[in-house]
Amino acid sequence: MEGDKVMSVLVNKEIIFFGGKGGVGKTTCSSAYSLSLARRGYKTLVLSTDPAHSLGQIFQVELGDAPKKLDTNLYGIEIDPETESKRYINRIRQQMQGSFSANIIIEIQRQLDAAYHSPGAEEAAIFDRFIEIIDLVGTEYQRVVFDTAPTGHTLRLLSLPELMDRWLQGMIERRRNVKEMMRMASVVDKSLEERIKDDPVMRILLDRKQRFEKAKEFLIDKKRAGFVFVLNPQQLPILETEKAVGFLERNGIPVEGIIINRIMPDDIDSEFFAKRKQVEDGYLRQIEAKFGDRILHRIPLMEYDISGYESIDRVAKIFS
């Protein structure tokens, strides 16, 4: 049975991301898949990185930044970038209570207040939380399932480690050069290595870099992580998925396959919908040609919205 393919291909990976265009069924598939994992006995965390969350809604539970139990073996989180950045910025504020001049304190407070809204802050905050969660894989949770935001947002998020790793490397080299020049200009006899070891700025930069490297390693580790795209038999989702798969593969992030969602039933007695079905068949053939054996599953269009435990359960049953 085809459902077995989802489980057999994915089940051994510790982290699975569900991605795709807006509204195609990412939240539906990640909920159903994580429920299947939990039923197989894996302690599973399902979490949403989409700032416009709907994971809690589908389970009909209010979710937040801390894990909440959804079922036996199943826990859920909706990452809240604002909670995350508040925590970070408050920590900095506390450390700032030193003996700085009033002028600079005012300026810095202004800067910290603006930081919440600076471009990239939301993604950076989500990514920080993501790195924390990676640490729980294999210890706190056996499986982690990501319900991601629509494609563009997610691809930006996933290219962050590569970009930041390079950027931080440059900064570390700059800092090292400055320290070296300072050593040359200084009368104090202290080696470069000592100066670097005693430098809190260097320590922070190296620590950041190390965390990004760890995330990067995890993302490209085919044994541990993988990406699944959900799409509908329609033109735009097909094109967007094709582009996104290419992007991930160029960046070494393994794509495990795709799930086709909302396929119209075969027995249609309305002429109008029979025509629609013909159009859809054309798109299904396109998907077949483009993705072939990477198609993991086909989910029919259901007569009801998928919301609430019972309907997730219905999809989960097809998976397992």
């Binding site: 970070y88 900095i92 300026e107 810095i108 990239g120 802050a121 950076a124 930041m164 931080l168």
Partner: peptide, 17 residues
């Protein structure tokens, strides 16, 4: 691109700012 991440350097660099 790194502005969010460098905020945590502020406590160590504010004096120089």
């Amino acid at each position: 691109p790194a502005s969010y991440y460098t905020l945590e350097l502020l406590p160590y660099m504010a004096e120089e700012l």
